[in-house]
């Protein structure tokens, strides 16, 4: 279980990315969108990145996060 206090924020992030699968956000951008502190978001995003739910894209100074869609198998 991840640190419980971050759970609601994680859920919010997941819901955001899931609803906007082609959103590309920096921590600051997401902070504005969700109205949450960038500091907490950073922790959450790193966590989501380890779980491969989001990934970092782009080069250079900006760290941009995007959603990684789950794989789908039709039988």
């Amino acid at each position: 279980m991840s640190k419980a206090e971050y759970l609601p924020l994680q859920i919010e992030c997941i819901h955001f990315f899931e609803s906007n699968p082609f959103a590309f956000e920096t921590v600051e951008g997401l902070s504005t969108r969700l109205g949450k502190s960038p500091k907490e978001l950073e922790v959450v995003l790193v966590e989501l990145e380890t779980l491969a739910i989001v990934e970092k894209v782009g080069l250079g100074s900006n760290e941009i996060y995007r959603y990684v869609q789950p794989v789908e198998e039709v039988l």
Partner: peptide, 27 residues
């Protein structure tokens, strides 16, 4: 349509968009 790879509704900030579009092989 997105699922069929016919459409993308992309949301990002304008500076990143310009930077990445004009850059060689930007995302």
């Amino acid at each position: 349509y997105e699922k069929q790879n016919l459409l993308r509704v992309i949301c990002l900030s304008p500076d990143i968009f310009l930077e990445e579009l004009l850059k060689t092989n930007g995302f």
